[in-house]
């Protein structure tokens, strides 16, 4: 009995950490410039495909390509900011809607492009150092790719935390506090925004690569993870790193417990239900600043 309970709790934790890291990238961009990136799930999907392609054609293990894909996604994030978001920010009329629908259009475009290049069918990475392996500790099965993914997520969180303590991190924080005043102390706001997008995209890229180690890869895989990421961010509090971590794990646990006790197909309903409840009593989320 204890083993079953432990299995459920650990399963939730392992998935929750992935959710947390996906949400961290979203939260970073949102906190920085008040933009919701509706193409966030598609960035994750691209990272998964990058991992898949590198694995299939270069024979690289997902763990090895982590830095490569993260760097690629960083560049893509900067590119998206410079090409689209900077323009959307400079719009004077109807800005809120323009921001939403520019990233939405981008999401649809990326999904179409992935379908065009890779086709719509599901793919998976099924060989590698860890693929398909499980460890067993005290009757609890631990799928190794997921364990590795969780560890990488924790490291990535530590990395984000470390970055937030650097000069750049303080510039991020200052830009978030008052995006107009930072110009007075010599911070190039545009550059900070671009780097913020790069960092956010790289973060979700890391999550995507690790996810690709044990999850199917397909053009529409991002949509569902993105939705959970929005909920995670809203639950944890927009812009809060710690909030994303706590909320991500919480959501993983809620999913796992619902799937075990009730009906697997309803696991997300309970997640979204909890989000609605939190929304009513604490609209800014668990760790959100006002």
């Amino acid at each position: 009995m204890t083993a079953i309970i432990l299995q459920v709790v650990i399963g939730g934790l392992l998935m929750g950490l992935i959710y947390a890291l996906v949400a961290a990238g979203l939260s970073l961009i949102f906190g920085l410039m008040d933009i919701v990136n509706f193409a966030h799930g598609e960035l994750m999907m691209l990272a998964m495909f990058a991992a898949f392609v590198l694995w299939q054609y270069a024979g690289l293990d997902p763990l090895m390509m982590l830095p490569v894909v993260a760097l690629l996604l960083f560049g893509l994030g900067v590119l998206i900011y410079r090409g689209l978001i900077a323009r959307a920010l400079s719009v004077s009329f109807n800005r809120g809607m323009v921001q939403i629908f520019v990233t939405f259009g981008l999401a649809i475009f990326i999904r179409g492009a992935a379908q065009f290049v890779f086709g719509g069918e599901f793919k998976s990475i099924n060989t590698g150092w860890l693929a398909g392996r499980t460890a067993q500790i005290g009757g609890v099965y631990l799928p190794l790719p997921q364990v590795a993914a969780s560890l990488v997520c924790l490291v990535a969180f530590a990395g984000l935390l470390a970055i937030s303590r650097t000069e750049f991190g303080r510039a991020l924080e200052a830009t978030r506090e008052d995006r107009d005043a930072v110009a007075l102390i010599g911070i190039d706001r545009d550059r900070i925004f671009a780097l913020g997008w790069g960092l956010g995209a790289a973060t979700v890229g890391v999550a995507g690569v690790m996810l690709a180690g044990f999850y199917y890869v397909a053009p529409n895989v991002g949509a569902n993870f993105a939705l959970i990421a929005y909920v995670t961010v809203a639950l944890g509090g927009f812009g809060s790193l710690l909030g994303a971590l706590v909320a991500g794990v919480l959501i993983g646990e809620v999913e796992a417990v619902t799937a075990a006790l009730l009906e697997p197909s309803l696991k997300q309903v309970s997640v979204f239900g909890i989000y609605m409840v939190v929304l009513m009593f604490r609209p800014r989320g668990l760790f959100g600043k006002l």
Binding site: L84, R87, A88, V91, S92, F93, N94, R95, M97, V98, F101, V102, F104, G105, L106, A107, I108, F109, I110, R111, G112, A113, A114, Q115, F116, G119, G120, P219
Partner: peptide, 24 residues
Amino acid sequence: SGRGVDLMIYGLVIVVVALARPAG
């Protein structure tokens, strides 16, 4: 044939119109 070109065109139109004609 599920090639996704339709989605690419649709997404592109959304992005271009939203940026070039924010008022619609």
